[in-house]
Computed example of a mutant assay.
Amino acid sequence: MSSIEGRHPDRNLINMPMKQNLVKEKHDASLHLISRDFETCIDVCQKALHVLSSTVDLQQASDHQEEMEEFIVIIVQAYAELDRWQEVLPCITQHYSGIENVSPNVLKVCLLLHAKVQEFSTCSALYNIWTSSREGREVNDSDLEMLLDIYVTQTLLQAGKSSQITEVVQSSQLSQDTKERLIATYSELVRETQLAEETASTTALPDLAHPQNIVDRVVAKGLRALRMMLMWIWSVRPRLSTRTLYSLGGLATLLIIATQGFDTSNRTLEILGNLMEHFIRSKR
């Protein structure tokens, strides 16, 4: 008899036939998920979860919780692929009798899913319900820190609620040293995020926001118009002297210098050069 059976003689671990059946169903569900047969995957998981959640004498068995977790993770992925994320919480609460009873790994999946679809208020509700239910109860610090990190980085920061981070960290059940370390880490992360946003907003400004860019565009349009005019004159007066063409080109050059100074853009010079080269070749 195993040590767990010895401590709980009235509760058995999952018996071998059931265990083998669950292993097979988990394997089948994973294959359906990989092959993108999501509906069948959900059906297989639902049946297995129903067996696990309805077997009262298995509720405290250690391998019972592990089996529940694995099927929940698979079924959540299937719902997400079908864009039926609204069905995830009803499914979980049905088998766990409330979000406060789920394991840290199951809550992790829920937080990540709802953050991905930007249901930040739901993430906050899930995290607060679960952490409140853990007050006065022993919880692994690594699990607490993992969930806190997901909530801060995927919910509070993404929702623009960085001002709440310190309060959330301080209200956790982590040690004071850990809280101070996390607050320092998140403060730096907030600064980096704000700097990145400011940089992105600056570089995202349209070209016309800079006066010199306005001049560049006006001059370029003017040169294109001049080229069209010269082409028209050449078609009407094919014997027009090269001197006249150079005079018009010089006029365009003066226009560039007057509006931009001698530090003209490469694009503008290229347009002017192509313009004169075209008519010199045409004259020949």
Score class of each variant (00 low, 15 high):
Gly222Cys: 07
Glu66Tyr: 08
Met146Lys: 12
Thr55Asn: 14
Leu195Ala: 11
Ser235Ile: 03
Asn101Gln: 15
Asp143Gly: 01
Leu112Ser: 12
Arg7His: 12
Ser172Tyr: 04
Ser163Ile: 03
Leu226Glu: 03
His114Leu: 10
Val152Ala: 02
Ile150Lys: 10
Thr202Ala: 11
Ile233Cys: 03
Ile129Asp: 07
Asn274Gln: 08
Glu66Ile: 02
His8Ser: 13
Thr55Arg: 13
Ser142Leu: 13
Glu39Gly: 08
Thr185Glu: 15
His27Ile: 11
Gln154Thr: 13
Lys116Met: 09
Leu254His: 08
Ala61Lys: 07
Gln158Leu: 13
Gly160Gln: 05
Ser282His: 08
Gln20Gly: 13
Ser97Asp: 06
Lys19Ile: 00
Trp130Glu: 07
Arg243Leu: 01
Ala204His: 09
Leu111Trp: 00
Leu269Met: 10
Lys47Leu: 13
Ile165Cys: 03
Thr155Cys: 13
Glu167Arg: 09
Ala78Val: 06
Glu87Ser: 06
Val51Phe: 12
Gln260Asp: 07
Val215Lys: 06
Leu174His: 00
Leu144Ile: 10
Glu25Thr: 12
Asp57Val: 11
Val102Asp: 03
Arg191Lys: 13
Leu33Met: 02
Phe279Asp: 03
Glu188Tyr: 05
Trp85Glu: 13
Arg224Cys: 04
Arg7Asp: 15
Ala78Cys: 00
Pro238Asn: 08
Ile233Met: 04
